[in-house]
């Protein structure tokens, strides 16, 4: 629905940045997606500012083969650290992944039950804690944006390894 440039044969890949840009570093995932030049990607790759979209993100996630998710985490690591994770079930996600997506990752489990789960690769960016209501990233996080943008750009060139089975409820 967001655009129709995808060709039928190539696996569809979604680069999805989530977070709340009103809460400083919490919005780092959105900053990364905004730093990407979508036009430079092949037509099967789509970039989406997921904001704090929670359940509204199920539709874009369900309609692709691989999701590259970028989100902030408060995991006690040095702020600005980046981890690449391949979570399968909700319990595999860092359990301090911030508030806005909790319903989303829980519902991902339902996709596994239905056989409609996309492959998810998570780039978790460590932040120091929930921030005041500001729209700027902290000085520590600012240089991380271009670094993660490069990482997810490289990730988008890797096709999904899984083949999705057909849903039982579609």
């Amino acid at each position: 629905m967001r655009k129709t440039k995808t060709s039928i044969d190539s696996p569809r890949i979604l680069i999805l940045g989530i977070g709340n840009v009103l809460m400083g570093d919490e919005g780092v995932g959105v900053h990364v997606v905004n730093a990407l030049d979508e036009a430079a990607f092949p037509p099967n790759v789509e970039c989406l500012d997921g904001g704090v979209g929670s359940f509204l993100l199920l539709e874009p996630m369900q309609s692709v083969d691989k999701v590259i998710l970028i989100d902030a985490t408060i995991d006690g690591q040095e702020p600005g650290s980046v981890r690449r994770l391949t979570p399968k079930f909700s319990t595999d996600y860092p359990n301090t992944l911030t508030a806005h997506d909790i319903g989303l990752k829980d519902l991902l489990d339902a996709f596994y039950l239905m056989g409609t789960a996309p492959e998810v690769v998570l780039y978790a960016v460590s932040i120091s804690g929930l921030q005041d209501m500001v729209m700027d990233l902290s000085p520590v996080l600012r240089p991380v944006v271009s670094k993660v943008a490069k990482m997810v750009t490289a990730e988008a060139a890797i096709p999904p390894v899984t083949v999705r089975s057909s849903p039982i409820c579609a």
Binding site: E59, Q62, L113, M114, P167, C169, A170
Partner: peptide
């Protein structure tokens, strides 16, 4: 499970 499939359309 059906509601989960359904909701992605209406939005």
């Amino acid at each position: 499970l059906e509601a989960l499939e359904w909701q992605k359309e209406v939005v």
